[in-house]
Simulated scan of single mutants.
Amino acid sequence: MAAKQLAVVTGASTGIGLELARCCAEAGFDLVLAANESAIEDAAIDLRKLGVSVEAVETDLATTEGVDMLCAAVGERPIEALLANAGIGLGKAFLDQEFARIRCVIDTNITGTLYLIHRAGNQMLRRNSGRILITGSIAGFMPGSFQAVYNATKAFLDSFSFALREELRDSGVTVTCLMPGATETEFFRRADMMDTKVGTEKKDDAHEVAKAGFDAMLRGDSNIVTGLKNKIQTTIASITPNEMLARQHRKMAEPGTAKS
């Protein structure tokens, strides 16, 4: 029997990452999952019920050592799909944040993500085959007052994905950027944003977001903005002055804006 294709999914213990892994499993991919918490083992147990091989790696993807650990678990197996989803947020004003937490957001969302894509992407390029899905965000379209570092990291990823896609044009390796809006996950609780409007209002469904991103990756699309409201928001953002966008974002993310 031919071996199943392998998908690597990061940040796969909960939320969009877990649902991306579920989409892969339902499509018949074997999985290597990674996250920085023990819940990744529970995710693996659940996904094995779908009849695929699932290996869980608990590792800190904010570090090069953590990425190396994930790559060692993959070994020489060809990665057909890399779903680079690991990411964390951080609320409150920039100068009120602990710099260690700021650094962790940057190292997780950007440095670790790029290192993993560099390693897996080179493997794909040697085979002239592979798919890369990067979880960006519509947050990358606007200056994120009271979420400044997170939005900036997503702006970086959104931009990077289009540049990498062009570099790999006609190589057999595709790059797709998933750009969700606020989604029902653990993100806002972990980012300490449950006293904000965006943290407490109704959000998009994680499985629907993941399925849209997974399907776009399989099609080889350049990007997918999920949800009509988010599509409208990004269109408006493209013609709105940054100063105004920053002021609007404040109304969503400033502590104390949650509805009582």
Rank of each mutant, 00 (worst) to 15 (best):
residue 69 M to Q: 15
residue 25 A to E: 07
residue 240 T to D: 11
residue 114 L to I: 12
residue 90 L to I: 03
residue 256 G to S: 10
residue 188 F to T: 02
residue 206 A to M: 00
residue 226 T to F: 01
residue 97 Q to V: 10
residue 260 S to Q: 15
residue 205 D to K: 00
residue 147 Q to L: 14
residue 164 L to N: 02
residue 182 A to F: 07
residue 148 A to P: 09
residue 242 N to R: 15
residue 58 E to Y: 08
residue 76 E to V: 13
residue 18 L to A: 03
residue 26 E to N: 08
residue 166 E to H: 13
residue 158 D to N: 15
residue 102 I to K: 14
residue 183 T to G: 01
residue 228 L to T: 10
residue 35 A to M: 06
residue 210 A to C: 00
residue 223 N to P: 04
residue 112 G to K: 09
residue 73 A to Y: 11
residue 193 M to I: 06
residue 133 L to V: 06
residue 116 L to M: 01
residue 116 L to T: 06
residue 128 N to S: 15
residue 35 A to P: 07
residue 119 R to Q: 12
residue 224 I to W: 06
residue 159 S to Q: 09
residue 197 K to P: 11
residue 51 G to Y: 02
residue 30 D to M: 12
residue 251 K to L: 02
residue 244 M to K: 15
residue 220 G to Q: 03
residue 240 T to K: 05
residue 141 F to M: 05
residue 174 T to Q: 11
residue 154 K to S: 05
residue 12 A to T: 04
residue 144 G to W: 07
residue 169 R to K: 07
residue 259 K to Y: 14
residue 102 I to L: 15
residue 51 G to L: 03
residue 186 E to I: 09
residue 200 T to I: 07
residue 235 T to V: 14
residue 109 N to G: 05
residue 218 L to M: 10
residue 197 K to I: 09
residue 53 S to V: 12
residue 60 D to F: 00
residue 93 A to T: 06
residue 215 D to H: 06
residue 132 I to V: 04
residue 260 S to K: 15
residue 134 I to R: 08
residue 105 V to H: 00
residue 179 M to Y: 09
residue 151 N to E: 13
residue 85 N to S: 08
residue 12 A to W: 09
residue 211 K to F: 01
residue 260 S to L: 14
residue 145 S to V: 13
residue 34 A to L: 07
residue 141 F to K: 09
residue 140 G to N: 08
residue 54 V to Q: 05
residue 204 D to L: 04
residue 135 T to E: 01
residue 6 L to G: 05
residue 78 P to L: 09
residue 90 L to H: 03
residue 130 G to Y: 07
residue 85 N to A: 02
residue 112 G to F: 04
residue 128 N to G: 15
residue 210 A to D: 00
residue 125 L to D: 08
residue 102 I to H: 13
residue 134 I to V: 14
residue 230 N to Y: 00
residue 212 A to N: 01
residue 55 E to S: 13
residue 112 G to T: 04
residue 217 M to F: 06
residue 144 G to N: 10
residue 196 T to W: 14
residue 142 M to P: 13
residue 213 G to T: 05
residue 143 P to R: 09
residue 183 T to V: 08
residue 195 D to W: 12
residue 250 R to E: 12
residue 68 D to G: 02
residue 96 D to F: 10
residue 177 C to M: 05
residue 203 K to P: 04
residue 55 E to I: 14
residue 182 A to V: 01
residue 78 P to M: 05
residue 30 D to L: 10
residue 157 L to F: 03
residue 168 L to P: 01
residue 94 F to P: 11
residue 164 L to I: 04
residue 52 V to S: 02
residue 253 A to W: 11
residue 175 V to I: 07
residue 166 E to T: 10
residue 44 A to D: 00
residue 248 Q to H: 13
residue 72 A to H: 07
residue 243 E to M: 13
residue 254 E to C: 08
residue 161 S to F: 09
residue 106 I to K: 12
residue 256 G to D: 09
residue 89 G to D: 04
residue 160 F to V: 05
residue 212 A to C: 00
residue 254 E to R: 15
residue 162 F to G: 13
residue 12 A to G: 04
residue 43 A to W: 14
residue 131 R to H: 10
residue 55 E to Y: 14
residue 75 G to Q: 08
residue 104 C to G: 14
residue 222 S to A: 10
residue 6 L to P: 06
residue 66 G to I: 12
residue 80 E to P: 12
residue 37 E to D: 11
residue 158 D to I: 12
residue 24 C to W: 02
residue 12 A to Q: 03
residue 25 A to I: 09
residue 97 Q to Y: 03
residue 60 D to V: 05
residue 79 I to C: 06
residue 219 R to E: 08
residue 231 K to F: 02
